[in-house]
Design a protein around this nucleic acid. Structure first.
Length: 217
DNA sequence: ACCCAGGTGGCCC
DNA sequence: GGGCCACATGGG
């Protein structure tokens, strides 16, 4: 049975509405948030971001030059705070060195080049790199996270578990529209959180109500 | 007292 | 390429 991703997207959007991702004031705040949110809740990230903001550390220059101990104290609520502090400082120092902290200039490069560049930095893996590209860089890249994999699996749409293969699956089967990429990813996280945590998709799941699940759960 | 959260890197095979 | 582990706070 044919199962166009766009139908799933429309069903989710109709049920949940816009998710308002990524909540941030600047491109750099998105980059910092992308690192901070790894394996933690957004609630914790908000605390850390506000702590950084109070100390005026939400800029490439200030964070790149801030003492590690100070950053650690401020981002502690997110967990893995020693590693993440190092990563934040390292990424900032890199951006400072390579584009003087001018993120508009940084993102002017080609998507493929940027992706490789980001992946070389410590603390930025595929998901974080793609989040940065999509939400801060306004690049048309689909973000794959644990929820997305889980939802696909429940819908019997997960053919291969390889990150880039799943990403290309989305990119090939969706309209080439950044807004849809952003909203869809956020909606998949919402669906995963609400209905797809450990048990199968339940009766109340709007996707099921729409009759969108072809396989057994 | 567990379990999990909008992952990543290192090491092993 | 996959399987395991450390990294760590906060909330259920």
């Amino acid at each position: 049975m044919e199962y166009p991703l766009i139908t799933l997207y429309e069903s989710l959007y109709k049920s949940f509405g816009p998710q308002h991702w990524w909540p941030a004031r600047t491109k750099f705040e998105i980059i910092a948030g992308a690192i901070l949110t790894q394996q933690t809740t957004w609630k914790n990230v908000e605390k850390a971001i506000e702590n950084l903001r109070k100390e005026h550390l939400l800029s490439v220059k200030n964070l790149g030059e801030a003492p590690l101990r100070k950053i650690e104290k401020l981002v502690r609520p997110v967990g893995y705070y020693r590693q993440k502090s190092k990563h934040l400082k390292g990424v900032s120092a890199y951006l400072l060195k390579h584009c003087r902290g001018d993120l508009n200039k940084f993102f002017r490069k080609e998507t493929k080049t940027l992706r490789k560049e980001l992946l070389m930095l410590r603390g930025i893996g595929k998901e974080t790199a793609d989040s940065i590209l999509l939400y801060a860089g306004e690049k048309r890249v689909f973000v794959i996270d644990a929820y997305t994999r889980r939802v696909l699996q429940r819908l019997n749409l997960l053919v291969e578990n390889d990150y880039d293969k799943i990403r290309r699956f989305f990119e090939k089967n969706l309209p080439k529209d950044i807004k849809i990429y952003r909203e869809f990813h956020a909606l998949l996280v919402k669906l995963g959180k609400e209905f797809c945590k450990r048990k199968p998709l339940c009766q109340s799941c709007p996707v099921l109500k729409e009759g969108l699940c072809p396989g057994k759960l």
